[in-house]
Computed example of a mutant assay.
Amino acid sequence: MRYDLDDLRLFVHVVTEGSITAGARRMHLSLPSASARVRALEAQAGLPLLIRERRGIRPTPAGSTLARHAESVLAETTRLDSAVASYTAAPRRPVVLVAGASGMHRLVPRALTTFLRAYPEYDVSVSERPTPDSLRLLADGEADLGIVLHDEAGDTDLRIEQLSEDHLVVIGQAGGVLTGRTGMTYREAAEHPMVGLSQESSLRQWIDRHLPANAPVARYRTQVPDLHSLITLATAGAGLAIAPRPAVTPRPDLDICPLQDSWSLRRHLLAHGTRRSASRRATNALADHIRAAASS
């Protein structure tokens, strides 16, 4: 059987409204035209699809089945139109998002996963930046949104809102020096071999800036460019590591110990840029998805 999409759309409206008249109104059709379309559907199906009553209509079992599948077909058609339109529409300037290492590891991917799925017509340009660089880009109109750290935001004219807390922890292979510990200072961690992030990492730069002048020099067995590699090496026993708590998934082969230094508790903020975005709707929507990712 071959179905006309307008006929299916009309039938869904008729069943939803409980009236051919109301269904015709929603499709901007005359009542005789709508009635003829419904009768043609029944003739094609070879059985009644509607029970006509004095106060309206109700679907037969076959009519209910047709309406349910028609809704799925129409929804899939809408998604198809949107997907094709994303290639044919004029290219839009992407939304520009900047964030530090801890935000890039989990918060940004979660937000992008839901945003890009919900808005196939919009693109996002993402880059990892330390908070001072992010604030500069936002103030200069070169970025739309930024995930920045509270204690480095200082006095700024940018619109800022609270987002989430980010506590640094010490991690290491299960059964090692962290076993049974409920807390550890950086000074204690630095007594053991460590693995760290590279000097270019925004998190590494943040840690180095906050260490006191008399902090011991850690022995880094190796330095890696991203948190995934850092956590993998610490889990394998290569050395202790300092990482953001939200980035570390609990697992049997990994011990997690809160870092007790005063600078270990950080607060993420969502900062809004000054540039006139190509699409304010896209920027606002991405901000909503970032908030939802932070709250989850």
Rank of each mutant, 00 (worst) to 15 (best):
Tyr119Cys: 08
Tyr119Leu: 11
Tyr119Glu: 15
Pro120Asn: 13
Glu121Phe: 01
Tyr122Asp: 15
Asp123Ile: 00
Asp123Pro: 02
Asp123Cys: 05
Ser125Cys: 09
Val126Ile: 14
Val126His: 09
Val126Trp: 10
Pro130Gln: 08
Pro130Ile: 07
Thr131Ala: 07
Thr131Phe: 06
Thr131Val: 10
Pro132Gln: 05
Pro132His: 03
Pro132Asp: 05
Pro132Tyr: 03
Asp133Trp: 05
Asp133Gly: 11
Leu135Trp: 04
Leu135Arg: 03
Arg136Tyr: 12
Leu137Asp: 08
Leu138Cys: 14
Leu138Tyr: 05
Ala139Asp: 12
Asp140Trp: 09
Asp140Phe: 09
Gly141Arg: 01
Gly141Tyr: 04
Glu142Thr: 09
Ala143Thr: 11
Ala143Cys: 10
Asp144Met: 15
Leu145Pro: 10
Leu145Val: 13
Leu145Asn: 10
Gly146Ser: 09
Gly146Glu: 03
Ile147Trp: 06
Ile147His: 02
Ile147Thr: 08
Leu149Pro: 00
His150Ile: 00
Ala153Val: 13
Ala153Phe: 08
Gly154Thr: 10
Gly154Ile: 08
Gly154Gln: 11
Asp155Thr: 13
Asp155Cys: 04
Asp155Trp: 05
Thr156Arg: 03
Asp157Pro: 02
Asp157Leu: 14
Leu158Trp: 07
Leu158Ile: 12
Arg159Ile: 13
Glu161Pro: 03
Glu161Ser: 14
Gln162Lys: 11
Leu163Ser: 08
Leu163Asn: 07
Leu163Asp: 09
Ser164Asn: 10
Ser164Trp: 04
Ser164Phe: 08
Glu165Leu: 14
Glu165Met: 13
His167Tyr: 06
Leu168Asp: 11
Val170Gly: 00
Val170Phe: 01
Gly172Val: 01
Gly175Asn: 11
Gly175Ser: 12
Gly176Lys: 07
Gly176Ser: 15
Gly176Tyr: 08
Leu178Lys: 07
Leu178Gly: 07
Arg181Tyr: 00
Thr182Gln: 13
Thr182Val: 12
Gly183Phe: 10
Met184Asn: 06
Met184Ile: 14
Thr185Gly: 07
Arg187Tyr: 04
Glu188Gln: 15
Glu188Leu: 06
Glu188Trp: 05
Glu188Cys: 05
Ala189Val: 00
Ala189Asp: 03
Ala190Lys: 02
Ala190Arg: 02
Glu191Ala: 15
Glu191Pro: 04
Met194Glu: 02
Met194His: 01
Val195Gln: 00
Val195Arg: 03
Gly196Thr: 05
Gly196Glu: 02
Leu197Met: 11
Leu197Ser: 06
Ser198His: 12
Gln199Tyr: 09
Gln199Ile: 10
Glu200Thr: 12
Glu200Arg: 14
Ser201Ala: 13
Ser201Tyr: 05
Ser201Trp: 03
Ser202Leu: 02
Ser202Thr: 07
Leu203Thr: 09
Arg204Leu: 01
Arg204Phe: 07
Gln205Cys: 06
Trp206Gln: 08
Ile207Gly: 03
Ile207Ser: 00
Asp208Tyr: 03
Asp208Gln: 13
Arg209Gln: 14
Arg209Met: 12
His210Glu: 13
Leu211Asn: 02
Leu211Gly: 06
Pro212His: 10
Pro212Asn: 06
Ala213His: 08
Ala213Pro: 01
Asn214His: 13
Ala215Asn: 01
Ala215Gln: 01
Ala215Ser: 10
Val217Met: 12
Ala218Glu: 04
Arg219Ile: 04
Arg219Val: 09
Arg219Gln: 13
Tyr220Ala: 03
Thr222His: 06
Gln223Pro: 04
Pro225Thr: 05
Asp226Ser: 07
Asp226Leu: 00
Asp226Tyr: 00
Asp226Thr: 12
Leu227Lys: 06
Leu227Cys: 11
His228Met: 09
